[in-house]
Nucleic acid binder design. Structure first.
Length: 574
DNA sequence: GTCGTGAACGACATATACTATGTAGTATA
């Protein structure tokens, strides 16, 4: 089955997570062994299902024990060791690790000393002031955890799923359902299709002749924890992680109406329905049809329905009832971004967390038809950063490669500088000036106040070496809020210093956010869509940055690497 | 947990800052 690799990865990652809780050490040899095994599996290209235990052991990082677990998983669907750990550490305890500032050691202590088994238990223990009595914890720690817990609950990331989790999940489910005989179409809709950064659930629409087989395939998937409801047209399940997935099976001829309805948003749908009513029609999830007599006007494709309503097809990312229907009617829908012709935030193995070589990254950029590629590994101020010598060596390599590439692809030797709490940057001005392209970004000190955060970023912008600010807010969706910033001051400084602002396509970041981009889209600032790739395959993440920019109605001509080669090349070498 | 050397056992260990407590836990690309 096509999911074998993902199933094995899920197993190894869950083993690692549960073993951290079991041993109370995120760095234990066993934990690291599971993680390196997962890494090895992720990188393995072949079909795992066909490999014997002996053959699995030949993969570097897979030993006898892991090979046996993989075979056990493939043959029985279960791994005894994992089941045992799940029994010892229920999901409600594992969930406690999502609270910022609470790690495995403290979770173990809270469980042992206070019997805390869930968020609710923790809330009660905090209310009873029981935490401060524990050795190693005090009133400050209690207060901090209370705040983290409150924030987690307030921001709703307990029940909303970040897009970085939801999108791979949805793609996996779609791929599985497409394998079912009789299925002619499967795709995800809902807020995920609109590219919302978190989703309440995952909606999948399927066109099939036999709904039963589709539902069977869904409920038997290994990611599924429990089935909430099951019928012929709709089945709802909850994944192990707690994400709800709704699958709806519709008739092939009504697919367009179904996709339109299930993609939403609610406000967008209401406006479309009002529009239908003024024409004597009604729009529902099955069709656009006449009120009297029910004659079908359109239903097969979204395009046909929009057209019947006198509108061009509206891209899902715009369907938020943010004025898109009015714009569509007036013919002023924002144009999509042009072809992306370069990337300015890409890592190689010179960064401690980079996984692809320079050669691999360059080959991937060429395959994408890029005209410019800035290699931007981490500088010394970041944990995984590189030394001066490593950068000089890399520069020589890049110059040599450029000589063989000619003018087809312009390589820039860049660096991702860390912005310190006072706005200070890595190395010294002379060394920074030696790079072709410097981007600077925040990686620490997230707790400074708004004035201090704004000051540090603006200070970095004023440095003559800095061409672009990376992932402006430094948020991690669903895990960490962005830093507090005075966006107006940032944009004013960006205009004044001609520092570009990144739209980072990494799904955990999507930074700048749609919210922030909407607020600054009428400025004169320059934007750059990037992948922040840490391996060659991740260059395609720039596509997500494009979606985010389009969702924010960012004018295409403000995005320097998606508006033609001439401006791009001039800017890149400017 | 895996791996390499020698056939059972030792080596393996991001590094560092920060915070709250008084040595340990957490967070970070």
């Amino acid at each position: 089955m096509a999911d074998t690799k993902q199933d094995v990865l899920d197993m190894l990652r869950e083993l690692a997570e549960l073993t951290i809780l079991d041993e109370g050490d995120p760095q234990s040899f066993r934990v690291r062994a599971y993680e390196s095994a997962a890494q090895a599996i992720a990188a393995h290209a072949g079909d795992l299902g066909r490999l014997t235990a002996k053959e699995l052991e030949k993969i570097q990082g897979i030993g006898k024990s892991t090979a046996a677990k993989i075979r056990e998983l493939i043959e029985t669907g279960h791994v005894a060791k994992l089941d045992g750990l799940r029994g010892k550490h229920p999901a409600s305890v594992v969930a406690l690790l999502r609270i910022q500032g609470l790690g495995p050691k403290t979770v173990i202590k809270l469980r042992k000393e206070l019997g805390v088994q869930s968020m609710a238990d923790l809330r009660q223990a905090i209310a009873d002031k029981k935490l401060r009595a524990l050795k190693g914890l005090g009133d400050k720690a209690e207060e901090k955890l209370a705040q983290s817990l409150a924030r987690l609950e307030r921001e709703g990331s307990i029940d909303r799923t970040p897009i970085s989790v939801a999108l791979p999940l949805a793609e996996r489910i779609v791929a599985r359902l497409l394998e079912v005989p009789g299925v002619t179409h499967a795709s995800y809709c809902g807020s995920l299709r609109r590219f919302s950064e978190t989703v309440g659930d995952v909606d999948v629409v399927v066109a099939a002749s036999a709904p039963g087989a589709v539902m069977d395939a869904l409920v038997s998937m290994s990611v599924v924890d429990r089935v909430i409801g099951r019928g012929d047209t709709k089945t709802s399940v909850v994944t192990r992680r707690g994400t709800q997935v709704d699958v709806r099976v519709v008739a092939r001829e009504a697919l367009g109406a179904a996709q339109l309805y299930f993609t939403g948003s609610k406000g967008h749908n209401i406006k479309l329905r009002q529009r239908a009513l003024t024409r004597g029609w009604t729009l529902n999830e099955y069709a656009l049809s006449e009120i009297d007599g029910g004659k079908v006007i359109a239903r097969e494709t979204e395009e046909q329905i929009y057209e019947a309503l006198g509108l061009p097809w509206i891209p899902p990312v715009l369907r938020e009832d943010w004025g898109e229907i009015e714009a569509a009617e007036a013919g002023t829908l924002p144009a999509g971004l042009g072809q992306v012709l370069g990337d300015f935030h890409v890592h190689t193995t010179v960064s401690g967390d980079g996984k692809s070589s320079l050669e691999e990254v360059v080959a991937a950029a060429r395959a994408r038809g890029y005209r410019v590629l800035a290699i931007t590994d981490h500088a010394e101020g970041t944990l995984s950063g590189a030394t001066r010598d490593a950068f000089l060596e890399q520069r020589a390599k890049i110059r040599a490669m450029q000589a063989t590439l000619g003018s087809s692809l312009k390589l820039l030797h860049g660096v991702e500088l860390n912005i310190g709490p006072e706005g200070q940057l890595d190395y010294d001005a002379d060394f920074r000036a030696g790079f072709d392209f410097c981007l600077a970004s925040v990686h620490d000190h997230f707790d400074l106040d708004r004035a201090a955060q704004t000051r540090r970023v603006v200070t970095a912008m004023r440095d003559p070496s800095v061409r672009m600010i990376g992932h402006l807010s430094a948020r991690m969706i669903g895990a960490r809020p962005g830093i507090e910033l005075d966006l107006d001051a940032i944009v004013a400084a960006a205009e004044e210093t001609e520092t570009a602002l990144e739209v980072n396509g990494g799904l955990p970041r999507l930074d700048m956010s749609v919210d922030a981009l909407r607020r600054v889209r009428s400025s004169r600032a320059t934007f750059v869509v990037t992948s922040d790739a840490h391996e060659a395959g991740e260059l395609e993440r720039v596509h997500y940055a494009v979606k985010n920019a389009e969702r924010a109605w960012l004018p295409p001509d403000r995005v320097i690497n998606a508006s033609g080669p001439d401006r791009l090349l001039a800017w890149a070498t400017g």
